[in-house]
C-alpha cells in the first residue's frame, strides 16, 4: 500500500497491459513510486511551478534544424536502425558501390566504441564520420548536427545515418531524417516487429536482409511482414542480400528516387517565387 496518498486499498494493478508497476489512485490516475511512502508529503507548504515541457523538445528542435538544412540543400537523409549484427554496415558498403558515379553518398556511423565502421565505409568509397556515443545507446539530433557540420554533405547527395545497433532507444529520437529505415536480418526471427513495435511503427521502410540464408532457416517471411504491418500498415518492405547482391537494385532505385525528389524540391524552393519548375 502506498502510505502517501492513501491509495492503498482497492487500488488496481494492471498487468500485461503495458502498465506493469503502475497503480491506480482514487482519482483514477496511474502512478509509479520508488517504494511505498517515497512521495510522502512534507510538513511545509510547497511552492509549485507549472512546467509543461516535453522531454524531447530540445532534441526535436535540433532535429528540425537538421531537417531544414537537408531541405535547403536537397539532401536525402535516412536514419538506419536495427539490432546489432543485422548487416547494416555491409549493406551500406554494397549500396555505396552500387551508387558510385550515380549519386554522391556520405555516411554518419554511430557506435558506442571504435572507428571500425567508418573505416569500412571509407574503404568502400564514401565520406564517413564516426560518432562514438560512449555509454549512449542511440544517436541524438544534437550529435548529428555536429556531425553534418564536420562532414559537410554535398547538396543533392544521399546521407545515410547508421544508428547504434539497438531496436529500442533510437525509436524515440528524431534526427531530422526523411525516413527511418529498419533493417531486419532474417536470422533474427519473424516476431521482432511485435517484440519491438515502437521501432517498426517509427520506420517507413523495413529491409529484410540476409535473404540468401533463407534456405537454411525456418524464417517465416509472410508472418514477419504481417507482424510489421500490424504495427505499421504503410511500411514498405524491401528484400536484400548484401552478400550476394540480391535485391540491391530495388533498394538503390528507391534511394536514388528519394534523392532526386529531395534535390528537385530544393531547386524549386530556391527558384524565383511563383515560378513552377
Amino acid at each position: 500500500m502506498c502510505t502517501t496518498c492513501g491509495c492503498g486499498d482497492g487500488d488496481t494493478r494492471i498487468e500485461g497491459q503495458g502498465a506493469e508497476g503502475w497503480h491506480r489512485h482514487a482519482d483514477g490516475t496511474l502512478h509509479h513510486h520508488a517504494q511505498p511512502g517515497a512521495h510522502a508529503h512534507g510538513a511545509t507548504d510547497p511552492r509549485r511551478l507549472r512546467i509543461e515541457q516535453d522531454l524531447l523538445a530540445a532534441n526535436d528542435a535540433h532535429a528540425a534544424r537538421n531537417r531544414a538544412r537537408f531541405a535547403h540543400d536537397g539532401i536525402f537523409a535516412l536514419n538506419l536502425v536495427s539490432s546489432p549484427g543485422s548487416g547494416k554496415t555491409t549493406l551500406l558498403c554494397r549500396t555505396i558501390q552500387a551508387l558510385r558515379g550515380l549519386l554522391p553518398v556520405s555516411v554518419i556511423e554511430g557506435d558506442q566504441q571504435t572507428r571500425r565502421d567508418a573505416e569500412r565505409i571509407r574503404a568502400a568509397g564514401a565520406g564517413a564520420l564516426q560518432v562514438n556515443t560512449g555509454k549512449g545507446c542511440h544517436l541524438d539530433a544534437h550529435m548529428v548536427s555536429h556531425a553534418i557540420a564536420q562532414l559537410d554533405p554535398a547538396p543533392g547527395s544521399l546521407l545515410l545515418i547508421e544508428n547504434v545497433g539497438n531496436l529500442v532507444c533510437p525509436a524515440a529520437f528524431d534526427l531530422g531524417e526523411a525516413h527511418k529505415v529498419v533493417v531486419l536480418s532474417i536470422t533474427e526471427g519473424e516476431d521482432k516487429p511485435l517484440k519491438y513495435p515502437d521501432m517498426f511503427a517509427a520506420a517507413d521502410v523495413m529491409v529484410l536482409n540476409k535473404i540468401d540464408l533463407a534456405p537454411h532457416l525456418s524464417f517465416d517471411e509472410a508472418a514477419c511482414i504481417g507482424y510489421a504491418r500490424r504495427v505499421n500498415p504503410q511500411i514498405r518492405v524491401l528484400r536484400t542480400s548484401a552478400t550476394t547482391g540480391a535485391g540491391i537494385d530495388a533498394w538503390v532505385d528507391w534511394l536514388a528516387a528519394g534523392a532526386r525528389a529531395a534535390a528537385r524540391s530544393a531547386t524549386q524552393r530556391a527558384g524565383p517565387r511563383g515560378v513552377v519548375a
Binding site: 511545509t44 510547497p46 511552492r47 509549485r48 512546467i51 524531447l56 500490424r230 500498415p233 504503410q234
Partner: peptide, 20 residues
C-alpha cells in the same frame, strides 16, 4: 483492423515541480 494511430500516451513531459 490493425495500425491504430496513437493520439495519446506517446509523450514524456515535466508537468510540475515542487520547489523551495
Amino acid at each position: 483492423g490493425y495500425g491504430l494511430r496513437p493520439v495519446a500516451g506517446t509523450g514524456l513531459r515535466v508537468r510540475e515541480l515542487e520547489v523551495e
